[in-house]
């Protein structure tokens, strides 16, 4: 089982193109135009990863994740964002975000969706911290001697 994916974006082009791009990664891919529709699909289907835009009409990404968490969904969320950090990114991070993918390049989208689906299939989202420390850079201290 690969897991099911929900794509939420108000741009029709992305709603039509992304499922084609990501079809090999997921069993089923659902799409929604805004957060409100996304919530309905979350309630109806078994979703393992949500890829959502942040700024959308009717219900934006921040309201969407807040409501989803309030309803008890721990599904990993990946948000599309512009470059750099902004207030909305900080807001959605409070509710648990798996990753941010910068539009329009969508770099690392495959890796991120793949790892989010894997996390979403597990009950426990905890990570093996020690595994991650390999990526940590250790500064060399100045020498006193």
């Amino acid at each position: 089982m690969k897991g099911n994916l929900l794509i939420v974006d108000d741009e029709e082009f992305l709603r039509s193109q992304l499922p084609e791009l990501l079809e090999d990664l997921a069993d089923k891919i659902f799409t929604a135009e805004n957060g409100k529709e996304g919530l309905q699909i979350l309630a109806r289907e078994e979703i393992h990863c949500v890829v959502s835009d942040l700024k959308m009409p009717v219900m934006g990404g921040n309201e969407f994740i807040k409501e989803a968490r309030a309803q008890g969904f721990n599904t990993p969320f990946i948000f599309f964002t512009g470059y750099g950090s902004d207030e909305t990114m900080l807001e959605v991070s409070e509710y648990g975000t798996h990753d941010f993918i910068a539009k329009p390049g969508l770099e690392n989208l495959f890796e991120s969706v793949s790892s989010a689906l894997e996390s979403g299939k597990q009950n426990d989202l905890g990570q093996t911290l020690l595994g991650q420390t390999d990526e940590i850079e250790i500064m060399k201290k100045s020498e006193d001697d």
Binding site: G84, S85, D124, G126, Q132, T133
Partner: peptide, 30 residues
Amino acid sequence: KPVICIFNTLTNTEALRKVLEYRNIIGTKE
């Protein structure tokens, strides 16, 4: 450039790195 480990967060390492704009960080729900 200290190593920063964030515990008790639902936000994943990659997302933390991007939103906080700091690479030397890891996050866990634990």
